Simulated assay, not measured.
Amino acid sequence: MVSKGRAPVVVALLLGVAACDGEPTPVTSATASATAFIAPPLRLPEAAPGAVCPVAEARTWNGPGQAGRVLGDGPVHPIADYFRDGSVLELRPGDRQPDGTYEKKVRWIGAGYSGPVLVRAARIDVPGPAGVTFSYTGEKRDGGHYAYLTREDNDLPATTTVAGPGCYAYQVDGATFSVTIVFGAVSSTG
């Protein structure tokens, strides 16, 4: 039998032991929203093998951050300055990974949006892998890279991985938008 005077000591002792195991993760609007985000279906266009890739047009960026041009209608965009002619990745021999894919630096930028964002990529002319990874935020999820943006203006260092020369597309989904952006990839000897 525990006396009334000892019960708070036991509870305090148990709380102290729990605190020693690490800080509990507080449930915030970001973590609650992250678990509530449901990825929409992937809806990418198709391109015929060998046909001209219907790439997105780069447009001038007047928003916050460092970018001359972006691809897509946003509010989260790949920066077109990383693409030749604004919409074609140049694949150099040094970009080739041990698994045969190519990895290129492509920063992303966002303005006027905070909340969940999922970026998925796929090859659309023939089968082949593709993907995006933000460097300092988020995780692999739902066949792409997921992050919860806590500010309305974001600069997101990232890489894009492609199988090789061909036609590709990003699908960028957030709580209030879904955007598809087509881009190409070509071999370069430089």
Rank of each mutant, 00 (worst) to 15 (best):
I38C: 14
G100Q: 07
P54L: 11
Y82W: 14
A80C: 03
G128F: 15
F37P: 01
S135D: 13
R43A: 15
A58N: 13
A47G: 00
P129L: 12
P78A: 15
E57T: 08
V27T: 12
P26D: 12
G143N: 09
A51E: 14
P98S: 13
D81H: 08
A39P: 10
G63Q: 08
G115Q: 11
D142F: 14
I38F: 11
P45E: 07
I109D: 01
D95Q: 00
G65P: 05
R96I: 02
A111E: 12
D95G: 03
A122Q: 11
G138Q: 15
G115P: 14
G63S: 04
W61E: 04
A80Y: 01
R92C: 08
G94K: 07
G144S: 08
A36L: 14
V132A: 04
S114A: 15
F134Q: 06
F83N: 02
S87K: 00
G128Q: 13
D81A: 05
L89S: 07
A30S: 05
G72V: 02
Q66R: 09
Y102W: 09
A51R: 12
S29A: 12
V55T: 12
G144V: 01
A56E: 09
I79G: 02
L89Q: 00
L149M: 15
A121Y: 09
W61Q: 00
C53E: 10
R84Y: 01
W108E: 08
R96A: 06
G68W: 14
P54C: 10
C53A: 13
T25V: 11
V52D: 13
S87F: 00
P75M: 10
I79D: 02
W61S: 01
E90V: 02
T35C: 00
D142P: 05
R96M: 11
P127L: 09
I109C: 02
A51I: 08
D95K: 05
I79F: 00
G143W: 03
A32G: 09
Y136F: 03
Q97G: 01
P93H: 10
T137R: 03
T101H: 09
T133C: 13
T133R: 15
D81S: 02
E57S: 15
S114W: 13
A111L: 05
E46N: 12
G74V: 13
P54G: 12
R96S: 06
Y82M: 00
G144H: 01
E152M: 06
L89I: 08
K105E: 04
T60Q: 14
D99F: 12
A47M: 05
T133A: 12
A58K: 07
V106Q: 00
